[in-house]
Every structure is written in C-alpha cells, then in structure tokens.
Design a binder for these strands. Structure first.
Lengths: 135, 135
DNA sequence: CTTGACATGTTACAAGTGTAACATTTATAG
DNA sequence: CTATAAATGTTACACTTGTAACATGTCAAG
C-alpha cells in the first residue's frame, strides 16, 4: 500500500466502497454508489478513473471488464486526513475535535473503551514524549 | 457568530491569525502570514476578501484602513470540519483518528486529561445516548 | 463476419481555489 | 491644492473538483 495521494470528498465515496469489498467492477461501484448518491454512472466512472490516475486504485483486466481494488490503506488515509486537519488547526485546541467525534458518531461502548485505551497510553504525566510516525 | 461557511485550507491561515487576535488590519495579517507562508501580499488580501464575501470576516472602516475580525467562532468551525471529516469516513473506524490526534500533537498532560474527561462522560456502558447538537 | 451491447477512453465545462498582477481611491505631506 | 504613498477594489489565470456527455473498442450472438 503506497502513501496516500490526495483523495477528494467525492472520491472518498468510491474508496469507501472498495475498502469495504474488493475487487469490484466499475458497474459494481456504480450500483453501490447509486444507492447513496444521485450521481450518474459516468460521474462515478470519472471518479474511478481519477483515482486510478492518482494511483489510489489499481485494476486487473478480465476480458473487457476491469476489476478495481484499493492501492492505499484505509487506516493510513484516515490518519493522513486527520493529520492534515490538525495541521490546519495549528495549535488550536483539540478538545472540540474529540467533542465532535463523540457527538457525531454513536460511539459504541467498546469504541469508547479503545479510545480511552489510546489515551491511557499517553497519560504518563510528564512522561516520555512519543515520536514515532505511523506505520 | 454565524454558521460556519466553507473555509478553504489557505483561508484557514487567515482565520487563525484573526482568531488569535482581532481586529487586525489587512497589513497586520499580511505581516503575520508572511512569516508562516511564502504568499505575496496580494494573495493574502485576496483570501481576506473572499472571507469577507463568505461572511466569515467582518470589518469596520477606520479612515482608509479596514479592521477585520472573525464573524464565525473558531470552535464551531473546528467542530464543523471535524464532523465533515467524520461524515466522509462514514462508518469507518474512529480509532485511527484519535491515534493521529495523539501522535500528531504533542499533547500536554492536561489536554490528555481533558480528552479523557470527555470520554469519561461517554463511558456509561450501555448508558443514555446523548443527542444534543453542539452550541 | 457483422452487429449490437456494454465496457472503457476521451473530452467538456462550470465553480471553487491557489496565487497573483493591475487599477483606483483617499489620507496626508508639501 | 496637488502629488504621492498606501490602502482597498477589480481582474486574471491555471489547476482541481463535481458533474457529466460523447466516442471508441471489444466480447458474444447470429
């Protein structure tokens, strides 16, 4: 999985479909997204093509059909987007972000548990500063 | 403070300056951003003007100078952007987001404390689902 | 082999963004 | 009052993004 290229909002819908299940043909993707959006087939195909150009998707030909699959990792993309947002916020307070996070999602108790876990690792007051970039 | 219009990445820099301190003249903003970016005066002025058009900034004339100030609340904007990102992620796992959050920022111990606090409020396993939208 | 159906490829076009130059107004120094 | 400097206003232009139509290639049926 390569290093996340810039994926636009509309393109995310396509990626989400393929992260959920892949490979898929263009038509599969069209079928899936037609249920969530009002986009025309051709619109969806354009998005797929752009993603291929960006190397976010790969495909293998099978007869006249192409089977698409992600070339980038979902988690990595989520982290990249999140970091991008954080950079944008500069030194702004992070609390509103977490607040939005817990408000927006219906967090399941165990998701909350895992989030706490992550924070717990950071807790060590005055402890070592972590430095590792993500995987 | 009105309901956050769409503020682009470059425009955020301008907003950040004015959220940090306002009112500021265009030149003040130019001075501040010139230190962080390589943008020309005119570029920065364009951004300011667009923000005024979008009603993200207001100004009062004082002689030939305009003094700009935010018309939207920073916290609200941060939450809006965060929600937008979350919506984009759909039902994707939220852990990578928090992970990026704690990795990216050098979170101070008390920031971590406050984040834990927020989560603690959510903890009540199987408890009431909150529903309130933000302020 | 010809034709049609359906796949992909190519092109389009308006709005938004990043990045900036050029033009006009106006306060202030002479 | 006039010229100048410094402020704001107007215009520009290429690239990206959202949204899509039109063109071309190719498997498969007759």
């Amino acid at each position: 999985m390569a290093k996340a290229p810039k994926i636009t909002e509309a393109e995310w819908e396509v990626m989400m479909a393929l992260w959920a299940k892949s490979p898929l043909t263009a038509n599969d993707v069209v079928d899936i997204l037609s249920k969530k959006t009002h986009w025309q087939r051709e619109t969806i195909r354009t998005l797929i093509n752009r993603l291929v150009q960006k190397k976010a998707l790969g495909f293998k030909k099978d007869g006249r059909q192409y089977h698409y699959y992600p070339l980038v990792d979902q988690t990595a993309c989520i982290k990249a987007e999140t970091r991008s947002l954080l950079r944008r916020f500069g030194g702004a307070p992070v609390e509103p972000m977490l607040a939005a996070l817990v408000e927006e999602q219906q967090l399941s108790p165990d998701q909350i548990e895992r989030l706490k876990q992550i924070l717990a690792g950071e807790g060590a007051p005055q402890g070592r500063r972590h430095k590792k970039r993500d995987a």
